[in-house]
């Protein structure tokens, strides 16, 4: 049995951790350049939105966003999910990222990304992510990535265990 005050303290720690993870993700210059909006952060999840913008178009004849913009959105969102999963904030670096493009994004519409960090070990975090236009609509792209934890600026690695 957990005492209520312990639960309250745990909830406060969680809120503080997620706020820091959010601040960290919000401090990324390229995320700002893309116009990315952090819509939500959960325990090991992140929800980002990429507002449609003319500068991100890959084919001016169709107005369809460039795949690279979706790649950057998914990479950023997946990284945020790792931050949200770590017991304490540490620098991370993408190790690999695979993206499957299921269908083109529709011109003029924002793209959402949702990422879940399924596991963190001492050194590596494992993430899956989706890009889509709206909840319930079929995905535009799916992604699977791994991230190294506690890169150059890090000092303490977590003791393994799940997210």
């Amino acid at each position: 049995m957990t005492a209520p005050e312990d639960e309250a303290a745990a909830a406060r720690r969680r809120d503080r951790r997620l706020a820091m993870a959010r601040a960290f993700a919000d401090n990324v210059p390229h995320n700002h350049a893309l116009g990315i909006v952090i819509e939500a952060m959960g325990d090991a999840t992140a929800r980002f939105r990429l507002p449609y913008a003319a500068k991100l178009v890959g084919n001016p004849e169709t107005g369809v966003l460039h795949g690279g913009a979706i790649t950057a959105l998914l990479d950023a969102c997946a990284g945020a999910a790792v931050f949200a999963a770590l017991p304490q904030l540490q620098p991370i670096a993408t190790l690999d990222l695979r993206i499957d493009y299921l269908r083109p994004a529709e011109p003029g519409r924002d793209v959402w990304a949702e990422a879940t960090c399924h596991h963190t070990s001492k050194n590596v975090a494992f993430v899956r992510a989706l890009a889509f236009h709206a909840d319930g609509e079929p995905p535009i792209a799916t992604a699977a990535g791994t991230f190294m934890i506690a890169t150059k600026l890090g000092n303490v690695a977590p003791r393994g265990g799940g997210a």
Partner: peptide
Amino acid sequence: APHLVGNPALPALHGGTLGALLES
């Protein structure tokens, strides 16, 4: 360009920009 940075502390380019460069 500064807007390509992902980690301002290092600094290092955003992984997404490298992915986009490789795809392009």
